[in-house]
């Protein structure tokens, strides 16, 4: 069954990497910081996710040194940029649609509504 929304963790990782190369810790910190600590990217799921994205060709990684420590720095590939753009648009479209369902005020503002038994 098709997922209702694109994978949020993958989208967040790709969005952070669109701003420039980063290692795992920097990615997790950036998501927490930029979301005002609302979105807590689980560190344990971040690394398997990064390996999945690398395997699928959306990111590439190379070892570098940071503060005298060897870290794997990830960056977006062209395929990753394309996927980010696609998922971002899909995400916005679907969140707006979901919001219309979840929020009656928004639905009424847009002239929509559900015909109820009494209206018929």
């Amino acid at each position: 069954m098709e997922s209702l929304l694109p994978s949020l963790p993958a989208l967040l990782v790709l969005a952070v990497l669109a701003e420039g190369p980063a290692h795992g810790y920097q990615i997790a910190a950036a998501v927490n910081e930029q979301s005002g600590d609302v979105l807590d990217l689980k560190e344990g799921t971040l690394y398997p996710r990064l390996y999945q994205l690398e395997r699928e060709g959306f990111v590439r990684a190379q070892w570098q040194s940071d503060s005298g420590r060897r870290v794997r720095v990830y960056e977006l590939t062209d395929a990753g940029r394309t996927r980010l753009q696609r998922d971002r648009e899909e995400w916005r479209k679907r969140v707006e649609a979901a919001d219309r369902v979840l929020s009656p005020a928004a639905r009424l503002r847009q002239g929509g509504g559900i015909a109820r038994y009494g209206d018929l």
């Binding site: 689980k42 560190e43 344990g44 799921t45 690394y47 398997p48 390996y51 999945q52 395997r55």
Partner: peptide
């Protein structure tokens, strides 16, 4: 603790890397 249960992590890595 923040990184999580190592056994869960192990299974997640195995799922990602062993099928390559």
């Amino acid at each position: 603790r923040r990184l999580g249960d190592p056994d869960v992590l192990s299974r997640a890595f195995a799922a990602q890397m062993n099928g390559v």
